[in-house]
């Protein structure tokens, strides 16, 4: 079957792309200088990598129930990954884990300096 072999080739390509993005995320995890840069390197290429592997599964199975489950899987991952990334970035910024010298501009610090009373209540409520 021509169609089957085309789908098989596409499956292989998607799997390889997913693996490549995973490796790139791992290399970024090792090379990047601070926690937030590592966050950039890992979470997002990984989601695309996962999407490629899910596409490969969809191409092999081609059943409505499986594909619906895969769509739910991707949606869950896409909703939850930004939440954890935001929480880690927020904790990292407040804890001073981002090296301030590595930033070109820091408009959040300017905003905090401009509104000291807001900053104080914000910190006190934590």
């Amino acid at each position: 079957m021509i169609l089957d072999s085309i789908l098989d080739i596409l499956t292989g390509v998607f799997l390889l792309l997913g693996g490549f993005l995973s490796v790139a995320a791992g290399v970024g995890l090792i090379r990047f200088p601070d926690a937030i840069a590592r966050l950039h390197a890992t979470t997002k290429p990984q989601i695309l990598g996962l999407a490629f592997i899910l596409l490969a599964i969809a191409l092999q199975e081609r059943q409505v129930s499986t594909i619906l489950l895969l769509i739910f899987l991707l949606i869950f991952q896409m909703i939850t990954a930004p939440v954890s990334a935001h929480m880690i970035a927020r904790a990292g910024y407040r804890g001073g884990i981002i090296a301030p010298r590595s930033l070109l501009v820091d408009e959040l610090e300017q905003a905090i300096d401009a509104a000291p009373e807001f900053d104080d209540t914000e910190r006190a409520s934590e």
Binding site: F20, L21, A24, V27, K44, P45, L48
Partner: peptide, 9 residues
């Protein structure tokens, strides 16, 4: 994603 991946490599 590919841009960041290539920046990492």
């Amino acid at each position: 994603s590919f841009t960041v991946a290539f920046q990492a490599l």
